[in-house]
Amino acid sequence: MNETANAGAPQQKDHGVLYLGIDLGTSRTSVAASNGVRETLASHVAYPKDVVARKLLKKEVLFGEEALEHRLSCNFYSPLASGHIKWGDGNGAGNAEAEANIKATADLVREICRRARPRKDELLYAVVGVPAQASIRNKEAIINAARETLDSVMLCSEPFAVAYGLDWLDDVLVIDIGAGTTDLCRMHGTMPEEADQVTLAAAGNSVDQVLADLIRKKYPEAQFSMQMVKKFKERYSSVLDTMEPAVVEMPVNGKPTKFDITKEVRDACRSIVPPIVEGLGRLIATFDPEFQHKLRNRVLLAGGGSMIDGLDTEIEKFMAEKLGGGTVLRIEEPLYGGSNGALKIAHDMPDDFWEKLK
């Protein structure tokens, strides 16, 4: 009788807590969980357009690469731009495009949490990484979207999460290169303030755009999409003079044709270096002069963009020219650096802190 009476009641969560560190990115969303699970997926969400699409796909919602593959049969969303929820042409909530992206973000969070494999009786406490200078409106929107799945949630800046995860908390500069933004953060033994953080548009998507423009200029007859350009970049990305030849296939009037885009890939990848070093220079120049040399020689390179071959040494070369020197260290796990750090923050927060956030 009791089982029947309680069949429709909500699941009681009284058997512990699963802590999650979530890196909610423009291109990829990653999670690291206290049960040891780590997952990443492309930040794409798709909903079948009609009954034919639902019959074909046999799903109500698709995520990641599967959503991208079937985007022509679906209402397709990459709901995050520059690490923020897309607001469309309106002023946020109430705008149809904004509401659709907020829903897609909530579904994306639900899916990445599902992939962390929580037990049904576990509370979900999560720290979510966001861009260093995310607006208050976007932070509120992300929290509201996350609360549909999570029992308690807090936000932190992505570069801070990277540094915290590695215990690099004093006299260090963090470069976190994502798809939508590059976040710079100055750590000096305390929580970073607004003056300690810089957000740049020079990031993965800007490299894609530069590469597309260069290809279009050199090979005007070639036909390509931005998704193709992104794949070219991810396959061959390098700033080295002796990089692997980047020979790709693009159609010309429907005929597959090979093109050498080696120089274009290298030049596009190098395009983000000057603004990054300029941003580092601003953070160094406004720091205590007695400790500026420490910052220059403790630069941590993170994020998906850090996987560009030779980028650490290229930044060092530019720092030597513009700032008088510097040492750059690339983190070992660029895809999980933010989520690993966010998980560590979640673990270190006291229980009463999480209770207050519910």
Score class of each variant (00 low, 15 high):
Asn2Glu: 12
Glu3Ile: 03
Thr4His: 13
Ala7Gln: 09
Tyr19Asn: 09
Asp23Leu: 07
Thr26His: 03
Arg28Met: 14
Ser30Cys: 14
Val31Leu: 09
Gly36Leu: 09
Val37Pro: 00
Ser43Lys: 01
Val45Ala: 05
Val45Gln: 04
Ala46Pro: 02
Val52Thr: 04
Ala53Ile: 03
Lys59Ser: 02
Val61His: 05
Glu66Asn: 00
Leu68Ala: 12
Ser73Lys: 08
Tyr77Ile: 05
Pro79Leu: 08
Pro79Met: 05
Leu80Pro: 12
His84Gln: 14
Gly88Ile: 09
Asn91His: 13
Glu99Asp: 15
Ala100Val: 11
Ala100Thr: 10
Asp107Lys: 04
Arg114Phe: 02
Glu122Pro: 06
Glu122His: 08
Tyr125Ala: 03
Val128Asn: 06
Val128Glu: 06
Lys139Met: 11
Ile143Lys: 06
Asn144Cys: 07
Asn144Met: 08
Ala145Asp: 07
Val153His: 10
Ser157Met: 12
Glu158Arg: 05
Pro159Ala: 06
Phe160Cys: 08
Ala163Arg: 03
Asp170Gln: 14
Val172Arg: 02
Leu173Arg: 00
Ile177Ser: 02
Ile177Ala: 05
Asp183Tyr: 00
His188Ile: 06
Met191Ser: 13
Pro192Ala: 04
Glu193Thr: 13
Asp196Met: 00
Asp196Tyr: 05
Gln197Pro: 00
Gly204Asp: 06
Asp208Lys: 02
Val210Ala: 13
Ala212Tyr: 03
Asp213Gln: 15
Arg216Lys: 15
Lys217Ala: 15
Pro220Gln: 04
Val229Asp: 07
Lys233Ala: 00
Glu234Ser: 07
Arg235Gly: 01
Ser237Gly: 14
Val247Glu: 04
Pro251Ala: 03
Pro256Asp: 08
Thr257Ile: 09
Val265Ala: 01
Arg266His: 00
Ser271Ile: 12
Ile272Lys: 11
Ile272Thr: 14
Pro274Ala: 10
Pro275Ile: 08
Val277Pro: 09
Phe287Gln: 09
Leu295Pro: 10
Val299His: 05
Ala302Asp: 08
Gly303Ser: 02
Met307Arg: 15
Ile315Val: 13
Lys317Ser: 03
Lys317Arg: 10
Lys317Met: 01
Met319Leu: 11
Ala320Pro: 08
Glu321Asp: 13
Glu321Thr: 12
Glu321Ala: 13
Gly325Tyr: 04
Gly326Phe: 04
Leu335His: 13
His347Phe: 15
Pro350Cys: 11
Trp354Arg: 09
